[in-house]
Design a protein around this nucleic acid. Structure first.
Lengths: 343, 343
DNA sequence: TTTTGTTCCGCAAAGCTTTGTGCAAAGCTT
DNA sequence: AAGCTTTGCACAAAGCTTTGCGGAACAAAA
């Protein structure tokens, strides 16, 4: 019908009352007579009035928008976390503005700028794999804008964050490998400036010690989280004279690439090499063999991020940063359960 | 430093000039002297002034926001399309508000309502699998708001849309199966009220005819696109006395489930059954055997959607709906190439 | 000195909502 | 009947930006 949405003014004019009267009537303000209130509400409903969020935002100085920065949207891990964020946001009448750093430090900085100039009320961020310098988040402290990091975090003494216990997770994986009979456990590790990669590597070492296995630096490959890099690393490990009997890949993508390389070498999983992935998703069940994997509560991580955001928004005083550690779970499938080598 | 972002007013006050002068100076308006312009611009830069998008939106009556509704965000297909939409939006200074219908008709209606009351400038939508009634899009016609459908479309005579040639795609798959030696080609089909599912079924039939194969209704299972449904359908087909030697699954998820069921039955791919998926993504290469798949230009589909949106926004007259058909490509991997059965 | 013309900047409105304050009329008390 | 309270609504400001128009100050021309 009407090209543009109708405003209080339109209703006021039609009913020959003032704008403020309409506004109050719609909120059932006692100042307005019942008769008039009914009439106004009826017309408002008929015309499908809804308050202009721009005007509200201008008045209240709030946009009701949360900015999110992920390294990559096209991924089960991030998209399901976003889904979790979005669900809490929606419950609170907020919207989510999603941007992607494409794993680039430069783009991440741009995203921060853009989101801030869009007047988002807060940020939920997972760092790009390149990010080593965190100064672009400093102005956020000054502006007292809520900021929550997840997964790849930094400056946890200043900002709230949602993480998993990477150290313990890696520890459990190694233990599981050991119990499955593995003795030469390799690790394809991520860049060590990334908190998660670093913690997983630490957990790997601690896990070895716990199993009384000696740390062998030849069994660790540090990669840049690209497919090519992962393939090269897997190959290098598998070509070792004394090659590993289990591989702990730093994330799921790397695990799948590793799986592919193991098969390409003519080796069998789990007979020759055990394998475990991280981030349990649908595809872990369809690969062959089904991939043992650490289940991340991705949706809940997202919800937790949003909750921490709202906690900060709602309390007017500066809240101390909170670190939330989420539980993961080892889902054992065939890829890590040793069968007899001769079978 | 400052808790709230600074405005023209702040700069004006600091420099003892009027707000309008500041506004003009920042745009290099000739009315303002060079000296004053320089001074104002310097201060604005120092204070990191950026115009308040809410105020601009209110003035210009535009939010620079595109609303997107997808059935499910947590999916390679949709998230990469969104990525494409976002890239074009960003180039044009627009933002994308993403909502998910979770494949529910009710939620889809809510999303439309919410986005409209958020004053998005247009919508880009992929229908939920439940949606058979399209009346919730009617008010969008009345309001003359740009609306672009993709993949699962409707009312193509009224709205622009971006699709792939599903009919031809299915046709090519059947042809490929036939050339690989398959003679009893089954189809796990989607709900027939969905344009894509329907077209694929048509293409399947046409493909059979083209190969001079007889249509056998026992070889077709219509499912509701759930994992359970898919597994049941696959099982039913594989339990047929004269079971199929090739299966065309309506989408990727169904293909993976089918693959799993085939293996569970002790059958081999491709020796006993050929299989083809749709939507080529990373995981197609890591399953065993690698899955032959139809590559969708997902990122470009997203970009095309956004382009159609901007075409409508920019032309003031009502533009006739455009249907854009994107090219797909059959990527042949091992799952569909017949080996000798005896091997 | 008065008129004409520049140059440079301020005023105000519009876009929409909320809310404190003001004001008129009606109802009440004494 | 005069004064007080209550009821019911309107006015205006604030939040921020853009832009048409008006106007002051000054220089040059008549």
């Amino acid at each position: 019908m009407s090209r543009k949405p109708i405003s209080l003014k339109d209703i006021a004019k039609e009913l020959n009352v003032s704008i403020s009267t309409v506004s109050r009537a719609l909120k059932n303000h006692p100042d307005i007579s019942v008769a008039l209130t009914t009439k106004i509400q009826a017309l408002a409903r008929e015309r499908e009035f809804s308050p202009n969020p721009l005007a509200m935002g201008l008045l209240k100085q709030q946009t009701r928008i949360i900015g999110v920065i992920v390294p990559n949207l096209v991924t089960f891990f991030y998209s399901s976390i976003i889904s979790g964020i979005e669900s809490v946001a929606r419950e609170n009448g907020y919207y989510v503005l999603i941007t992607s750093s494409y794993e680039s430090y430069i783009k991440e900085k741009e995203c921060v700028e853009n989101l801030l100039s869009s007047r988002v009320e807060g940020l939920i961020v997972c760092l790009s794999k390149e990010t080593k310098d965190y100064s672009h988040f400093e102005k956020i402290i000054n502006k007292e804008i809520p900021l929550v990091f997840f997964d790849r975090v930094c400056r946890t003494s200043e900002f709230s964050s949602v993480v998993i216990d990477n150290r313990d997770m890696a520890f459990q994986i190694i233990k599981h490998f050991y119990e499955s009979g593995a003795r030469r456990i390799a690790h394809i590790a991520g860049p060590q400036h990334l908190s998660i990669a670093c913690e997983r590597f630490e957990g790997y070492q601690a896990g070895l010690k716990n199993c009384k296995l000696k740390f062998d630096k030849n069994l660790v490959e540090f990669i840049d989280l690209t497919i090519d890099d992962a393939a090269k690393a897997a190959n290098k490990l598998l070509s070792l004279p004394d090659s590993p009997d289990a591989i702990f890949s730093v994330n799921d993508m790397v695990a799948y690439v590793t799986m592919k390389e193991i098969k390409r070498k003519g080796l069998r999983i789990p007979e020759d090499v055990l394998l475990v992935g991280i981030t349990d998703e649908f595809h872990a069940t369809v690969v062959d063999p089904p991939l043992t994997s650490i289940m991340h509560p991705t949706f809940d991580i997202g919800r937790e991020c949003a909750s921490l955001f709202f906690a900060q928004i709602q309390s007017k005083e500066k809240t101390p940063p909170i670190q939330k550690v989420m539980k993961t779970k080892l889902i054992v499938r065939e890829s890590s359960v040793r069968k007899d080598r001769t079978c």
